[in-house]
Design a protein around this nucleic acid. Structure first.
Length: 739
RNA sequence: UGGGGCGUCGUCAAGUGGUAAGACACCGGAUUUUGAUUCCGGCAUUCGAAGGUUCGAAUCCUUCCGCCCCAACCA
């Protein structure tokens, strides 16, 4: 797993700052309510990969807080799949259900502290009370119950005597928060179902948000990585943790980091949908080779190495994306290419009789180490013969020649057809000279010696690249031809294939001896993936739609100035200092910023204004200018240094960074940093010469006409001078040297 | 409509003011008794759009556009 993504970077930073004392603990937290799929593989590779690369640990935790949907079968499947993918959680196997008591105690703490209450509202009422995007939530009439009352009620919820849905425990959040997750989140619900691990001990079960953050904290997780849809939950994650005096909080609290979940075209990756496929028998179980589950891929013949390679290829980022399934297939082919023994197998046989073959003769031909029996009657692939072939067809055609792989060249003398006009047999002759050349090669088996074998040709489960995407239900996109079972003719050696072994059927694809369907001497082969077929691609007509980009011009809209006085200034600034409308708008958008500008603009007003618009705003983000460690006159002084050419603008930015961080007087900072603009052409000329010498190859390219390299050279000169050179001067000297 | 995110090649994805990485796909060409593999070469004058700041912008500022997520007693 490569570790150059933003999450690894965050972990690295935390290590450097010693936020967790150098500890790195991640976790993979599946809920045992279904089988793991490719999306989980991405998360597993990420979490275990991080732990490995940073010498930390990755916990495997069953996030089992819902007795209704969970099952021990899934726990076993999950463990098997993680292990198969090549990861080891050592002794770090955990269950959220083991934390029920601790979680319950924390809930009691919330209650006693007046931070949680038992609510009798119905589900619909709670929803209605939550408010909307434009209005705050309304408090539940039960929000003001006393801690004692809430405690008694919560204990009663746990007694088992209450009906599910009759009461919930809620945290007192912020009903006015723009984040719905904060509007009195639910902590516990009543469920009287049997739990697969705790049986009937519990009648209240914690919700995800409440259980997950504390589970992480209990285990000392440092980086709690989840998918994008939990971004809104992060505020609540942090909030819950801060409410309880806890080891590490708030400084070393686990941090939740989100990344984009995996989407792959021509398939679905949601446990709910996969469960539907299994339950409604659209596939043959969770490990059906058409399923994108780890178990399905494994049975299809995909390897753990290939899946890990695929996860490496797609990277980790925050943009929603739909990955081309071809990438997975590439990873699979690459891996299988190296590890598969070769076999000759004719999937759709066409009989070939070699008329000049000596009657009754069997010859053993050498096929790279193994022997292949050859006789006068053969099978070749139906697709390898075409009566009316397209241009560049290298295979068999009437009167044409083709080489039998590892054997002789044959020539098609006659085509035999059945009553309905279908080609039933080819009459051929062979050329006994093994050195005789032919353009194409074809695989074959001897009719007399070959064996019948069951081959399962799997194709993508859905016809549509994005079965989840459109209006239609995903099942309507099911590919009716996702499985074709054929009886193939295989060379005798093929029968010895042990279950779970990988093979390449030459010119056809990679196949896997099915671990459950195969019998001794009767393997069943699953097609893992076909060979890359550039001939098939060539036959298809090119289809490429040019997308015309539209360059629409947009008019800017600005909010009116907050006060008439500011509105007046807005006009005045444009007239007196030559500001554009948008610059004037920014400088008059609020009183404080405007006051800051006014008191800084005692000199070089346009430059001061532009600096505020383009530099200060970036540094400010959501802060106010009053929080800055320096005052308006300091900014004036900085601009003065730049405008009078005492320092370069580039150096001015460095000074500004220091001011932002520690405050201080610009001229003092300039002295401390040793920044004085170098406008002496002799000094710059020397730097220019050095830079040219050090980058001879690029210089040659620039001389050759790659003008964009000029910027690169200016940059190098700036760097060499520590930002002190006058860039215009540097550029003109470079241009002069160019001639 | 409030909030949280995200827009870089057909598809993923680096890039953090100084030459637009890499991979898949695609297109050549070489080698080949698998139209596979391997090898070599080509593939973003431009980063959602438009303006601006700067010697220099994918990166900083402004406005606009598009997509995803959030008002589950699921996780």
């Amino acid at each position: 797993m490569s570790t150059n993504h933003f999450i690894a970077e965050r972990v690295q930073q935390d290590n450097e700052s010693q936020k967790y004392g150098g500890r790195v603990v991640t976790r993979f937290p599946p809920e045992p309510n279904g089988y793991l799929h490719m999306g989980h593989a991405k998360s597993i590779c990420l979490n275990f990969g991080l732990a490995r690369d940073f010498h930390g640990a990755c916990h495997l935790r069953m996030d089992d807080t819902n007795p209704t949907t969970e099952d021990p079968e899934y726990v076993e499947a999950i463990k098997r799949d993680v292990r198969w993918l090549g990861f080891d959680w050592a002794d770090k196997m955990f269950y959220a259900s083991d934390y029920y008591q601790r979680l319950f105690d924390i809930a009691l703490q919330f209650i006693d502290a007046g931070k949680a209450y038992v609510d009798d509202l119905t589900e619909e009422q709670i929803s209605a009370h939550r408010g909307s995007v434009s209005e705050a939530g309304k408090p539940s009439p039960f929000r003001s119950r006393t801690p004692a009352e809430n405690r008694a009620l919560f204990l009663e919820m746990q007694s088992g005597k209450l009906a599910p849905g009759s009461k919930v425990l809620r945290a007192k959040g912020d009903l006015a928060s723009p984040n719905f997750k904060m509007r009195d989140p639910l902590m516990y619900r009543i469920k009287n179902d049997h739990h697969y691990r705790t049986g009937t001990k519990w009648h209240v079960y914690p919700f995800y948000d409440f259980a997950h953050c504390f589970s992480d904290a209990f285990e000392g997780i440092t980086h709690s990585i989840c998918t994008l849809e939990f971004e809104n939950n992060r505020e609540l994650y942090d909030w819950y943790l801060r409410q309880v005096p806890f080891a590490g909080a708030p400084k070393a609290m686990p941090e939740q980091i989100e990344f984009a979940r995996l989407n792959v075209d021509y398939t679905v990756l949601s446990k709910r949908k996969l469960l539907e496929l299994v339950k409604d028998k659209h596939v043959d179980g969770w490990d059906d080779p058409r399923m994108p589950t780890i178990a399905g891929l494994r049975r299809r013949g995909y390897t753990a190495d290939a899946i890990r390679k695929f996860c490496d290829m797609i990277g980790i980022a925050k943009a929603n994306s739909l990955v081309d399934i071809g990438k997975l297939e590439f990873a699979v082919r690459e891996d299988l290419e190296a590890r598969s023994q070769r076999l000759l197998c004719v999937v759709r046989p066409l009989k070939v009789v070699i008329e000049n073959w000596p009657a009754g003769k069997t010859e053993e031909v050498d096929a790279g180490g193994r022997k292949l029996p050859m006789s006068g009657t053969l099978y070749i692939e139906r697709d390898d013969f075409d009566e009316n072939p397209p241009k560049d067809f290298h295979r068999l055609k009437p009167g044409g020649e083709v080489r039998l792989r590892f054997a002789y060249v044959i020539k098609c003398e006659r085509v035999v057809k059945d009553a309905s006009g279908n080609v039933s047999e080819l009459r051929c002759s062979y050329n006994p000279d093994p050195a005789h050349k032919a353009k194409g090669i074809v695989h074959w088996v001897s009719a007399e010696h070959c064996k019948d074998v069951e081959v399962r040709l799997y194709d993508r489960l859905f016809k549509d690249p994005n079965p989840d995407g459109g209006e239609a239900h995903f099942l309507t996109h099911l590919n009716p031809k996702s499985l074709e079972i054929v009886k193939a003719k295989i060379e005798p050696h093929g029968l010895s294939a042990e279950p779970s072994t990988h093979w390449q059927f030459e010119r056809v694809g990679y196949f896997f001896a099915d671990p459950v369907l195969s019998k001794p001497n009767a393997p069943v082969f699953n097609r893992s993936v076909g060979l890359k077929d550039s001939w098939a691609a060539k036959k298809e007509e090119p289809k490429r739609v040019e997308v015309q980009k539209t360059h629409a011009k947009v008019d800017k809209e600005f909010a009116p100035a907050p006060t008439p006085a500011l509105a007046a200034k807005r006009d005045a600034y444009q007239k007196t200092h030559g500001f554009s409308l948008e610059e004037a708008v920014i400088l008059t958008q609020d009183e404080t910023l405007n006051a800051f500008y006014e008191s800084a603009a005692t000199k070089h007003a346009p430059a001061v204004g532009r600096w505020i618009v383009n530099e200060l705003l970036r540094a400010l983000k959501d802060r106010s200018v009053t929080e800055l460690p320096f005052k308006a006159p300091d900014l004036t002084a900085l601009i003065d240094l730049i405008e009078t050419n005492a320092i370069s603008r580039r150096a001015g930015k460095d000074v500004f960074e220091v001011m932002l961080k520690d405050g201080g007087v610009p001229s003092t900072i300039v002295d401390k940093l040793g920044l004085r603009q170098v406008s002496d052409s002799g000094a710059i000329e020397k730097i220019v010469r050095d830079v040219i010498a050090a980058n001879a190859a690029q210089w040659a390219k620039l001389k050759g006409g790659e003008t964009k390299l000029l910027g690169f050279f200016v940059g190098q000169v700036m760097k060499a001078s520590k930002g002190q050179a006058n860039p215009q001067l540097a550029q003109s000297l470079l241009e002069k040297s160019l001639k």
